[in-house]
């Protein structure tokens, strides 16, 4: 069963290209949900394991700071460079040298930024999962405007009190 000679070097799922714009979008969404979902589970596990011995989080900002410092350090070997918030549940995390993008080469006109985008989806899931483990429901979106920087936007779902 392990006859390698006939196999291609591309991973499963990267086979035939989509034909229409709609199919392209659908496939893109499917990949997003899958990577985000995988990341979510990893984020849950990481926080479960690494927040065990620390004091309880006081508020959402406290948890976000844990993500920016401890979790980022664990996963990406550095801290987030900048954190901004509108104090109404939106947090913007900027990492100027985001590790997963740090070694990407950019061909001029090669749509590097667009092609780097999918590499942000797994990290988005990790953040969402991490926050969920701390009791915060949120949506997380990410974009890169210039490699190797990345900007993550976290929108927490308001809690009724």
């Amino acid at each position: 069963n392990n006859n390698g000679s006939g196999e291609t070097t591309t991973g499963a799922g990267a086979s035939v290209g989509p034909h229409t714009k709609l199919e392209e979008d659908e496939e893109r969404d499917a990949v997003f949900f899958r990577l985000d979902g995988l990341g979510y589970r990893v984020g849950l596990g990481l926080v479960e394991r690494f927040s065990r011995d620390r004091p309880r989080f006081n508020d959402t900002l406290d948890a976000i700071k844990f993500v920016c410092k401890d979790l980022w350090m664990l996963v990406f070997k550095k801290q987030v460079d900048n954190l901004k918030t509108n104090h109404r549940g939106v947090y913007v995390l900027t990492d100027n040298v985001f590790r997963p993008l740090s070694r990407m080469s950019a061909d001029p006109g090669g749509h590097a930024v667009v092609r780097a985008q999918p590499f942000l989806w797994f990290p988005c899931g990790i953040i969402r999962g991490a926050l969920a483990a701390m009791g915060i429901a949120a949506t997380v979106q990410a974009e890169t405007n210039e490699l190797p920087g990345a900007v993550f936007q976290i929108k927490t779902v308001p809690v009724k009190q």
Partner: peptide
């Protein structure tokens, strides 16, 4: 990289495959 990150990520991938192939472990191994 952090060992737990690797372990958890791998575990998540295996779990996802088990789900995708509905417990067809021969296929998951493959």
């Amino acid at each position: 990289v952090n060992a737990e990150l690797v372990t958890l990520t791998y575990g998540t991938i295996v779990a996802q495959l088990c789900k995708d192939f509905e417990g067809d472990y021969v296929e998951v191994n493959k």
